[in-house]
Amino acid sequence: MLLELDGITVAFGGLVAVSNVSFTMAEGDVLGLVGPNGAGKTTLFNAVSGLVRPTQGRARLLGRDLIAMPIHARARAGIGRAFQVPQPLHELTVRENLIVASRFATGRIDNERIDEILDLLKLGHKAEAEASTALALTEQKALEVAKALATNPKLLMLDEVLAGLETAGKRAFMHTLDAVRARYGLALLIIEHDIETITRLCQRVIVLNFGKLIAEGTPEHVFNDSEVIRSYTGGEAA
């Protein structure tokens, strides 16, 4: 197994943000993570990438215990993460963002790969621009993915990288993600609100509500589940 989560629970004081969530992913899997706002999706991402410490549960990447590792070690182990709100490395150019990611996650600066990533994500013309000030929203989102790719991940976690883009932008970005997957063959874990996008990208979907995993299956199966529909619409419809 690539990723194994076993009973992950994250509590902040009395508030349980993620409750006893377990699932697995194989190499090359594309898994969608859906659920209403506040369902605990981003917290679960934080628990996997190391930004929060789970109160309970285990997480393994290729059999290695993730929970014991600090954030940077998880990046080196193969966890790549794109933030929902783009977090470029400040005061650095786009290329320097990737240089830092490549150098520190893989131990050497792989310039060939960096150029290839810039190309794939259509950031080549902005390579020397300052990342935190000179990018349009689409480019910022692309940089989030590019940074994560430069760490040479086995699992790429994308937190709503398509949110906020208009339809054409979304479609273009989905093509880019297809190309990324075709090129690097990595597994994707995707948080997304838009059902159409999820259905188009993912083979499998899991649904979180109030921190609990309430459904798992193919997109067609899950999105016809009445409980899922209720959680999405706040319990009024269906």
Binding site: F83, Q87, A148
Partner: peptide
């Protein structure tokens, strides 16, 4: 790259750690 990572750490510490910087 050490200098770049250190520079980035000032304003984006989490993002820097997430790409493997100790």
């Amino acid at each position: 790259p050490y200098g770049l990572a250190l520079k980035a750490m000032h304003d984006s510490e989490d993002a820097t750690k997430v790409v493997g910087v100790n």
